[in-house]
Design a protein around this nucleic acid. Structure first.
Length: 565
RNA sequence: CGGGGUGUAGCGCAGCUUGGUUUAGCGCACCUGCUUUGGGAGCAGGGGGUCGGAGGUUCAAAUCCUCUCACCCCGACCA
């Protein structure tokens, strides 16, 4: 491809809207342009990359025996009303009406449609199992679209749905999808982790998320190098590996200290010159019936309110100025001498600890030398915080690691949830009508594009992995007005493309610096430089983007080099 | 949704507080010519916006007021 025949609007300056590297680079490299919040156009280079990702996915899906189909974007509301998701999905679903005011939606996912078609057309256990997939646009009216392609409202996803006659067939399909997803991400060449996940709105039993590791990931992954355990932060098991004091009681008496206007853990730790972990953090909560709870945990930890909600089986909210009907001195509350109307829910991070600091339940006072065994009694003990650095693997007790990730794939065992609701059944070997045992498997195509940039970049731009790079090489002729250089560039270009090496020929009559900068920004793996050295000694330079090393080559060696690397 | 912020040329921004001195300005990009051509060139000339939209105040509005739309950021961490 010649640069002058292409449409690659690169930008020197940072777009003001972008918050994250992949967003900025995908705009600057001319891959995408925004149309509206969370809605993007793909320009030629972006689209080219997209197709490469799609092809890898398509090949691996086909290898796994899945069959490609194409379902409509627009789906009848009636179908979604049958599964009740018309209401459950809420405002996140783009709903539209036709001229006769019939309800439709722009599909956020396709369980209803796939299940319906399977219900019509697959009648016998002999037809099963079968796995159908499509690569299609999806719509989700996100509360807050952001990070460019990472959280868009219109995006491309590959979604697959398997229909089995038995749990065994589902298990097999699930396994083969699991493996296909690993291959897809590995072929693209990304570092990733697989975590067990909640099934959420889609429902079902087993579920795994495929997380591409990246600093700006929205999820924190907790994992163990020793045994391979991995989970999302909010789903992670862990054991506390710290501060259980010896089990004698504290010798020291409780003393109130004056802490004027010091309400936060940070301020208190600073004021008393102690670590956050020596402070008892007390968070006030209330349920819908106005029962109050005090969650008590070690000062450096963060409360996971959903764990307490699960324990109590109630919805909880934090106490603020408006709902503090007990008029507790927020900022100075603590478990010692707590108001009797408040239940104490204690985290094991403060179990059997002494000489701690807590709120005194009196404005502008804290209390020191608190012994969690001696000085208060909890109504419940449990694990109510998120894991932090230093905590141990729940399986093998090694130290846990933490890394940020981007969810690019998610697979579920749905079971019969949809097939029952949509009456999608087949006849089994005994002539009984049975609902399909289903699985569904999604992988974000546009999100993979963004995740790849997020993982593969430096301060100069994108660094494409070979698997999905838009071009393998870019020919930079430093001076297009020089006939010798120009002709050499043309000839190399012809050689490379006739050998099917995807090549961008930067034939613009502009200064060389711009070409170098654009090549780096675009992330093309190899630069073939025809310039000064060629004029002097007929030497072509080949520069590698990721390692930024240069190799000298003879004219005829360029093709061989690129074929071999 | 709640809170905050921003809309001025394709992109990035200044001007707005204290209305008139701006036929609205700067950098990049773009066009023409010449010179350049190894890490975002130089000189000269040039095109492009009516200041998100609507309404209002005023002799006069990018600037003040009202409404509206769009976009961006933040949202338990007061324990």
């Amino acid at each position: 491809m010649r640069f002058t025949n292409n449409f690659i609007p690169t930008l020197k300056e940072e777009p003001s809207e972008s918050e994250i590297i992949s967003h900025s680079l995908s705009i600057r490299a001319g891959l995408i342009r925004k149309v509206a919040s969370g809605i993007y156009s793909f320009l030629p280079i972006g689209f080219k990359i997209l197709k490469k990702i799609e092809n890898i996915i398509r090949e691996e899906m086909d290898n796994a025996g899945a069959l490609e189909v194409l379902m409509p974007v627009i789906q009848p509301g009636e179908l979604w009303q049958k599964t009740n998701r018309w209401y459950e999905y809420g405002p996140e679903m783009f709903k539209i009406a036709d001229r006769n005011k019939r309800d439709f939606c722009l599909g956020p996912t396709h369980e209803e449609l796939f299940t319906t078609i399977a219900g019509f057309e697959l009648n016998s256990y002999k037809d099963l199992p079968i796995n159908l997939y499509q690569i299609q646009v999806k719509f989700r009216d996100e509360i807050r679209p952001r990070y460019g392609l990472l959280r868009a409202r219109e995006f491309i996803m590959k979604d697959a749905y398997s229909f089995g006659a038995s749990q065994k067939q589902l298990d097999d399909d699930y396994k083969s999808m699991f493996e296909a997803y690993c291959k897809i991400i590995e072929r693209i060449g990304l570092r990733y982790k697989i975590v067990e996940a909640d099934t959420g709105l889609i429902g079902g039993s087993s579920s795994h998320e495929f997380m591409v590791l990246a600093e700006n990931g929205e999820e924190t992954i907790v994992y163990c190098d020793a045994c391979g355990y991995a989970a999302n932060m909010d789903n992670a098991g862990f054991e506390i590996n710290a501060y259980k004091d010896d089990n004698t009681k504290s010798e020291k008496e409780l003393i109130e200290v004056h802490t004027p206007d010091i309400k936060t853990i940070e301020e208190l730790a600073d004021f008393l010159k102690v670590k956050n972990s020596s402070i008892i953090k007390t968070i006030l909560l209330k349920d819908d019936d106005n029962n109050f709870y005090a969650a008590v945990l070690s000062g450096e930890r963060f409360l996971d309110i959903s764990k307490i909600e699960k324990l109590l089986n109630k919805n909880l909210e934090f106490i603020n100025e408006q709902n503090n009907i007990l008029k507790l001195p927020v900022g100075f509350v603590g478990p010692v001498n707590m108001d009797k109307r408040v239940s104490i829910i204690a985290d094991y991070s403060v179990f059997e600890r002494k000489d701690m600091i807590a709120g005194a339940n009196r404005e502008n006072y804290h209390i020191i030398n608190v012994d969690s065994f001696r000085d208060f009694k909890a109504d419940n003990w449990g694990y109510f915080s998120f894991p932090i650095k230093g905590d141990l693997c729940p399986k093998c007790k090694n130290i846990l690691n933490f890394e940020k990730g981007i969810e690019v794939g998610h697979i579920f065992k749905l079971g019969t949830k949809y097939s029952e609701k949509l009456n999608a059944r087949f006849l089994d070997i005994n002539g009984n009508l049975k609902p399909f045992v289903m699985g569904c498997y999604g992988i974000g195509v546009t999100r993979l594009l963004a995740a790849t940039i997020e993982q593969c970049n430096d301060d100069k731009g994108i660094i494409w992995p070979e698997s999905i790079t838009p071009f393998k090489a870019v020919i930079i002729v430093t001076n297009m007005t020089d006939e010798k250089l120009k002709n050499a560039g043309e000839e190399i270009y012809n050689n490379l493309i006739s050998s099917k090496i995807e090549t961008l020929f930067d034939d613009r009559e502009i200064s060389a610096g711009i070409k170098f900068k654009d090549a780096d920004l675009l992330g093309i793996p190899f630069k073939v430089i025809v310039g000064r050295k060629y004029l002097q000694n007929d030497i072509i330079e080949i520069e590698n983007r990721s390692a930024s090393f240069k190799t000298d080559a003879r004219f005829t060696e360029v093709l061989t080099y690129l074929k071999e690397n």
